[in-house]
Write a protein that binds this DNA or RNA. Structure first.
Length: 541
RNA sequence: GUCCCCGUCGUCUAGCCUGGCCUAGGACAUCGCCCUUUCACGGCGGUAACACGGGUUCAAAUCCCGUCGGGGACGCCA
């Protein structure tokens, strides 16, 4: 895609800047989606940048996981290119340059105080700390001398403490009623004001010379000419610091839009550590969510088109999206807390199928029960599944069926698909909804299931015997089957339902299944007769 | 602790800015009925919310103040 954006251009440039310290979770995914939607709706550009300045915690596995998640979403991005990203770790010189520019203006200073040893780490309740005593007042000469002598220091931002500090204060810094304050306007949360006395002298460079997140982020956003920063609300208070950095470095701060947080049912924000794979994007993928359904679901958390529309395509979402539709209160992703710990029960699936699935039986695959997912996400996914053309749905189902160890050809799958389309919420449900189409031998079932409603064992035997005769000669097409079986029911003096039930159980191995005639049609005469034959051998009581 | 943000059915939300049309609308979930060869889909209906307390006003979910509750940020992490 050609670089056609000028700095004065009205076209927005947004970015998604995850830090690779874990898998991509649903909260980050939503941030990505909102940025993408904003860019697409306004004909702007979307940039991907890895904020990887934390060498301690970054892992390649995280990078891979993030890409895996984004790839599944299939939305893509514009810069630096598809499957490419900016890496903060490769732009450190730019960050340093920005820091020293601020320093030269006298808006940052060297702090030679040794780094915190980490004893008061957990408390997080320092509250009133603003700067280390003595560090701020150090003369430039003294500062230069100690630095030249090789003393370690952190570079700190000199947050304005008195009116005269900034010679010509930018509009973001105001003085009123004896108090200095920092201002910015958030597209979602409105006018934001914070007293400078409540902002500590945060670090720009660490004593090892590495930039901090605040510095790197702002320097990059300015350099990449980001016009709108759309991110989680957990950054709302940090934004005052960012505004200060932008102004001190001589940049115009971009527009900000903070998103309400996605929280767990207990109200706390989603955490990779606490909630684990339950909040991972790949978990949704593996369970059989359609990317567009997942996107649709996430969009509805914290944003509304305000017209009661819920089931929306990507195109509709793009057309409808606007920052004005974002609300301010946190949204709960309604998974069951119990799902967090019940994620290693794959044998249950095989058992339900009554068949050993080579891969699954190993017990290595994780299985997430339905409660892992928000009911609304499940419903939306089912809606999207029903909205898919049969060919496409079938093509998506095929690899799942094969992956579970069954062999089906595409043609048969295409005939099965319409029969289960309205009966599955997740793509993986194909394994439990259509299993009897795939196996040669039906798993054992309770013979009592063969007994029809308001009937007895004798009726089941009678029905099965007659069905066998009828099905031996009738054409295996919906209408002829329908007529023949109904006629047989009448002959036997049983209700249609009482006729169909034993047959259904005999061929499907259970009571709940797709419509009978369509099922028989796909199964074919041979399999049908074999299964009914087997049923008649059972001891029905 | 300090600062910031938020508070409408169980959940996601509309309404709030520009008070009256709100005896608060929709969706999911849940319950019941209908359709029906089972299940599902679909249709119809039910239960269910303006956190609380004061103001302002003829009139407040909507405006103001307070209380309580929840969340977030306060690091040489991001």
């Amino acid at each position: 895609m050609p670089e056609a954006i000028h700095s004065k251009s009205p076209q927005p440039r947004v970015r998604f800047a995850p830090s690779p310290t874990g898998f991509l979770h649903v909260g980050s995914a939503r941030t990505f989606i909102f940025n993408w939607l904003y860019a697409r709706h306004n004909g702007g550009a979307m940039i991907l940048r890895l904020d990887d300045t934390d060498v301690e915690r970054n892992t390649q596995a995280s990078v891979d996981s993030i890409f895996e998640g984004l790839k599944w979403l299939s939305l893509g991005w514009d810069k630096p290119g598809w499957d490419e990203e900016y890496k903060q770790s490769e732009r450190i010189e730019l960050h340093r340059k920005t820091a020293w520019t601020i320093f030269e203006k006298g808006l940052a200073y060297r702090d030679f105080t040794p780094a915190h040893t980490g004893d008061s780490e957990k408390s997080g309740a320092q509250g009133t700390w603003l700067f280390n005593p003595g560090a701020r007042e150090l003369s430039r000469e003294e500062s230069d001398r100690r630095a030249a002598a090789g003393e370690l220091f952190a570079l700190r931002f000199r947050v304005p403490r008195e009116e005269t500090m900034w010679g010509q204060p930018p509009s973001a810094v105001r003085f009123a009623e004896g108090k200095l304050s920092v201002h910015f306007k958030d597209a979602v949360y409105g006018e934001q004001i914070k007293a400078a006395a409540d902002i500590e002298d945060f670090a720009l460079l660490r004593s090892d010379g590495m930039p901090t997140y605040h510095l790197a982020s702002c320097a990059d956003d300015a350099d990449l000419r980001i016009s709108h920063i759309i991110r989680g609300q957990d950054h709302l208070t940090n934004t005052f610091k960012h505004v200060l950095i932008f102004e001190a470095a001589g940049f115009t701060p971009p527009q900000f839009a903070h998103l309400p947080l996605l929280v767990a049912p207990d109200g706390t924000k989603l955490s990779k550590r606490r909630h684990g794979p339950v909040v991972s994007v790949t978990t949704y993928r593996d369970a059989g969510f359609l990317p567009d359904a997942f996107i649709n679901f996430l969009c509805l958390l914290g944003w509304s088109p305000k017209n009661d529309r819920e089931n929306m395509s990507l195109k509709e979402l793009t057309d409808a999206f606007s920052l004005e539709g974002i609300n301010r209160s946190n949204a709960v992703v309604n998974f069951k807390e119990s799902a967090i710990s019940t994620n290693v029960v794959i044998p249950a699936l095989s058992a339900a199928q009554g068949r050993a699935c080579p891969e699954l039986a190993e017990g290595n695959l994780l299985f997430y029960p339905e409660e892992t997912f928000d009911p609304k996400a499940l419903w939306l996914n089912a809606e999207h599944i029903r909205g898919l053309p049969v060919e496409e749905l079938s093509a998506r189902l095929l690899p799942i069926v094969r992956g579970a160890g069954f062999s089906v050809d595409a043609e048969k799958m295409l005939r099965i698909t319409p029969l289960i389309r309205e009966r599955i919420k997740l793509l993986r449900d194909v394994l439990t909804a259509a299993d009897f189409f795939f196996v040669d031998q039906l798993p054992p079932y309770d013979p009592a299931e063969l007994i029809p409603q308001k009937g007895d064992a004798a009726m089941a035997v009678k029905v099965l015997a007659r069905a066998r005769e009828v099905l031996a000669s009738v054409e295996f097409k919906h209408d002829p089957l329908d007529q023949a079986l109904r006629a047989a029911a009448q002959e036997l003096g049983v209700k249609a339902g009482q006729m169909f039930q034993p047959i259904r159980v005999a061929v499907c191995g259970r009571k709940n299944a797709p419509p009978l005639f369509e099922t028989l049609e796909v199964l074919g005469r041979e399999t049908t007769l074999a299964r009914i034959g087997q049923a008649t051998q059972l001891n029905i009581t």
